[in-house]
Simulated scan of single mutants.
Amino acid sequence: MTQEPTVPARGGPHRPTLRRHLGELLAAVVALAAMVAFTGYVRNPPAAEQERPEVRVDQAVLDRASRDNPCTRGRVMLTFDDGPDVHTPAVLEVLRAYGVQATFFVLGEKARAHPGLVAAEAADGHIVGNHSWDHPHLADLSAEAVRAQLSDTQAAVTAAGVPAPTLLRPPFGSTGPVVHDQAAALRLREVRWSIDTNDWRGRAAADIEAAVLARLRAGAVILLHDGSRESGNTVRALPGIIEGLRRQGFCTAPMET
């Protein structure tokens, strides 16, 4: 086999070698972009795979927190999905400081991994709901698979010493007749949300807060996350959300079971 020259041929640069190198570089860039996109899409890996530091709540914020919860304009519900996880203790700490009760829609695999956090949620007066075992599109599954996703999560919650959930929030809002039937068989009521903060996308805390306060109305159900990779920003946004909604005359309450 004839080896390609390593120096340019007379009369101009060695174009085949340059084109090959450029092609290899382009392929590497495309592969890296695909890997980054895939990593961003998988927002809820199992708890054991999520290695990130817990956010510490500013003690000055907690010290000034007021538990006054006026209700001149009606109630709104704070809800948290995809936990329990590393940021759940900080969320609970903020809610406790402000005297807020919320609703946590837990994943079964994380509830099994962190039963103490599920118990802590219930002990603080929060509602614990079912968010499936590992966050699939439930509408794409068979009846048997949906039943396993829901019943296994029920079992993980009760194993933590907490009453079986009566509320189900299907991941992605993915539902249909099969999901309805399986939920009803387990005495689960399906619930959704009215304000999506998109906090799991990595939005800044100020943007998460603004997304809530700009759309408040009586009966609003606010979707937040305590179990995504970006939930540290949710923790940072939470005091401003609570203070802001109360300034507007709204009080907080867990969802009705």
Score class of each variant (00 low, 15 high):
3 Q>T: 06
5 P>S: 10
5 P>D: 14
6 T>A: 14
6 T>C: 15
6 T>W: 08
6 T>S: 13
7 V>Y: 11
7 V>W: 08
7 V>R: 15
8 P>M: 07
9 A>Q: 14
10 R>K: 10
10 R>W: 09
11 G>L: 04
11 G>P: 07
11 G>M: 04
11 G>W: 05
11 G>I: 04
12 G>R: 13
12 G>K: 09
13 P>V: 14
14 H>P: 00
15 R>M: 13
15 R>N: 03
15 R>V: 15
16 P>E: 01
16 P>F: 07
17 T>L: 14
17 T>P: 03
17 T>S: 14
18 L>N: 06
19 R>V: 15
21 H>M: 05
21 H>K: 12
21 H>L: 10
23 G>F: 01
23 G>C: 03
23 G>P: 04
23 G>V: 01
24 E>M: 06
24 E>H: 01
24 E>D: 06
25 L>I: 05
25 L>P: 01
25 L>M: 08
25 L>A: 13
26 L>Q: 09
26 L>G: 07
26 L>H: 06
26 L>I: 10
27 A>R: 01
27 A>T: 01
28 A>L: 15
28 A>G: 12
28 A>H: 00
29 V>T: 05
29 V>Q: 00
30 V>Q: 03
30 V>A: 12
31 A>E: 00
32 L>M: 12
32 L>V: 13
33 A>T: 09
34 A>L: 10
34 A>E: 04
35 M>D: 03
35 M>R: 05
36 V>F: 04
36 V>H: 01
37 A>L: 12
37 A>F: 09
37 A>G: 07
38 F>I: 04
38 F>S: 03
39 T>K: 06
39 T>F: 06
39 T>M: 02
39 T>D: 09
40 G>C: 06
41 Y>G: 10
41 Y>R: 12
41 Y>S: 13
41 Y>N: 09
42 V>M: 07
42 V>F: 13
43 R>D: 08
44 N>H: 15
44 N>V: 15
44 N>A: 05
47 A>H: 06
48 A>I: 13
48 A>L: 12
48 A>D: 12
49 E>H: 11
50 Q>G: 06
50 Q>C: 08
50 Q>R: 12
50 Q>N: 09
51 E>L: 11
51 E>S: 08
51 E>W: 03
53 P>H: 11
53 P>N: 10
54 E>H: 03
55 V>H: 10
55 V>P: 09
55 V>A: 05
55 V>Q: 10
56 R>Q: 14
57 V>N: 15
57 V>H: 12
57 V>L: 09
58 D>K: 14
